[in-house]
Computed example of a mutant assay.
Amino acid sequence: MADRQYIPMAEVKDTYGISRSSAYRAINAGKLVIRKFGRTTLLKVSELEALIESGKQAT
């Protein structure tokens, strides 16, 4: 995913295997920041990948 800076929320589950509710829990906890582009909710790929890596290290 290094070629894109942002990913739509709708693609997060298919691309990273993270459910929409898990993504919103991370957003509400301040671990991810959303960006809006019109009606589309976007997540920064580098922040999402950093969150995934920190979760792998914690286990």
Rank of each mutant, 00 (worst) to 15 (best):
R35H: 11
T59F: 11
Y24M: 11
S46G: 01
Y6C: 06
E11K: 14
A23V: 15
N28Y: 06
L43K: 07
A58D: 10
L48P: 06
R20C: 10
A26I: 04
V12M: 11
R35L: 03
A2K: 10
M9N: 12
L32E: 09
K56N: 00
M1D: 04
A50D: 14
L48Q: 07
M1T: 07
K36A: 05
L42M: 15
T15N: 08
L32W: 06
L48S: 05
L32M: 10
I7T: 08
A23T: 15
I27P: 00
K13G: 14
A23I: 13
R4C: 07
A58I: 08
I27M: 05
D3S: 12
A23R: 03
M1Y: 05
N28D: 13
E47R: 02
I7N: 06
L42W: 10
T40K: 13
L51T: 01
R4Q: 12
A10K: 15
G55D: 00
T40F: 02
V33F: 03
R20H: 15
I34C: 10
A26D: 08
Q57H: 06
K36G: 00
L51S: 01
E11L: 13
G38W: 00
D3A: 07
T41R: 14
L51A: 03
S19N: 11
L42H: 08
A58Q: 11
S54W: 00
E11Y: 09
K13A: 15
G17A: 06
S21A: 15
K44H: 07
R20W: 12
V12L: 12
A50S: 15
A10N: 14
V12E: 11
L51F: 02
N28A: 09
Y24H: 13
